[in-house]
């Protein structure tokens, strides 16, 4: 067994990359986050996300069913905040409306599917992507496939425990955290413009 700690780095890592959890990557606690497998303060990860998004050539947000469907109180507002964040970061949006492994194919120009997310990444030449509102197991599966087969940098803005299979992952992402990330991107953009 390797004694070098595993790092969650940009791919392509090859067919069937390991689940990061199986290589010892732990989830962050509230107030913390993950950058490439290492636990860091949440604020540091937010700065890193802003840097990645603002320096990307073709960044995309992938909102999942929990955000796309207005299924309970508060979702529509959160969706609006995420859209604002994506617009501010100059990112476009491709939805993941559900998880059916649509066979024989999906249209990668307009949707992303967790069972073959690489198709959407390749088709649109996406270099940085943000997962938000995707249920845990499907997010981890998709993040692993992206790490395995593409050179796209993955970011997860998770409302629950975080995603160890993303290159940067926040956890406990509520409205205040979204507002803070928006603020950081706003001020970084201001500095870049100055």
């Amino acid at each position: 067994m390797s004694i070098t700690p595993y790092r969650v780095l940009v791919g392509p890592e090859g067919y069937l990359p390991p689940a990061a959890a199986s290589r010892g990557i732990l989830l962050p606690e509230k107030g913390e986050a993950l950058i490439e497998g290492a636990i860091v303060p949440e604020e540091e990860a937010m700065q890193a996300i802003a840097t990645k998004l603002l320096s990307a050539k073709n960044p995309f947000f992938f909102p999942g069913p929990q955000l796309l469907w207005d299924w309970k109180e508060g979702v529509a507002l959160k969706a609006q905040a995420v859209k604002k964040l994506a617009d501010l970061a100059g990112a476009r949006v491709i939805p993941m409306p559900d998880y059916r492994p649509k066979y024989p194919m999906i249209n990668p120009a307009v949707e992303i599917n967790p069972n073959h997310p690489n198709l959407t990444i390749w088709h649109n030449k996406i270099d940085v992507c943000v997962f938000i509102g995707v249920h845990c197991h499907y997010a981890n599966m998709a993040l692993k496939i992206i790490r395995g087969g593409t050179s796209c940098y993955t970011i997860a803005l998770c409302g629950e425990a975080g995603h160890e299979d993303a290159m940067i992952s926040l956890c406990c992402m509520g409205m205040p955290e979204l507002a803070r990330l928006t603020e950081i991107i706003q001020s970084m953009k201001g500095e870049q413009a100055a």
């Binding site: 909102p63 955000l67 796309l68 469907w69 207005d70 299924w71 979702v75 529509a76 969706a79 609006q80 995420v82 859209k83 949006v93 491709i94 939805p95 409306p97 249209n107 307009v110 949707e111």
Partner: peptide, 17 residues
């Protein structure tokens, strides 16, 4: 029964709409 979050209405594939 089914509502799309208004902020993402325009990006949802036609099939879902």
């Amino acid at each position: 029964f089914l509502r799309i979050s208004p902020a993402f209405e325009d990006v949802m594939p036609a099939e879902y709409r």
